[in-house]
Simulated scan of single mutants.
Amino acid sequence: MTLSFDKPVRAVVTGAGGGLGRAFCLELGRRNAQVVVADIDLAGAEETAGQLEKLGCKAHARACDVARREAVAELAEAAQSLLGGVDLLINNAGVATSGPVDAIPPQDWEWIMGVNLWGVIYGCELFLPHMRAQGRGHVINVASAAGLLCTPMMAPYNVTKAAVVALSETMAGELRGTGIGVTVLCPTFFRTRIIDAGRHHGESRAASTATKLMERAKMQAPEVARFALDAAAEGTLYALPHADGSWLWRLKRLAPERFYHKLVPRYFGKIKRG
Rank of each mutant, 00 (worst) to 15 (best):
G114N: 08
G123C: 10
P129M: 07
L89G: 03
A162Y: 13
M154F: 12
V159N: 06
L89H: 09
V139D: 05
S98C: 06
W109C: 04
R176V: 05
L128Q: 10
E110P: 01
S144C: 09
G114K: 10
G119H: 02
N92Y: 06
N141C: 08
S144R: 02
G94A: 14
E110N: 11
W118H: 13
A143S: 15
V159A: 15
G135D: 13
A166R: 10
V165Y: 02
N91S: 13
M171R: 13
A146G: 15
V159D: 00
P105H: 12
L88K: 10
H138K: 07
L117I: 06
W118G: 00
V142N: 05
E125A: 11
M154R: 00
L83K: 13
E125T: 11
G181N: 09
P106Q: 08
H138T: 09
V159Q: 04
A133D: 15
L128C: 11
L117V: 02
I121P: 00
I112E: 15
D87P: 04
G119C: 12
S168H: 11
T183G: 06
M113Q: 13
A133P: 08
G179I: 14
G94W: 02
A172H: 14
I104H: 05
G123M: 03
I104A: 05
M153W: 12
M131H: 13
Q134C: 09
P156D: 04
V101N: 04
P129I: 10
G173V: 01
W118V: 01
V139E: 07
E110H: 08
R132E: 10
G99T: 09
K161S: 01
V139H: 07
G147D: 11
D87Q: 08
M113F: 15
L82V: 08
R176T: 05
C124N: 15
G177P: 14
A96R: 00
I104Q: 04
A96N: 07
V101I: 15
V159H: 08
M153R: 13
A143V: 03
I112T: 11
G84L: 08
L88P: 00
I140N: 10
M171S: 07
H130F: 10
G173T: 00
P100R: 14
A172G: 11
P106E: 13
V115Q: 01
A133M: 12
Q107L: 12
V164L: 04
G94E: 03
V159L: 15
C150A: 15
D87V: 03
M154V: 04
P156F: 02
R176K: 15
D102R: 10
G147S: 14
A93V: 03
N92I: 12
C124M: 13
L167K: 03
N91T: 02
S168N: 10
V120I: 11
G94C: 07
T160L: 07
T170Q: 02
N91C: 11
V101G: 00
A133V: 06
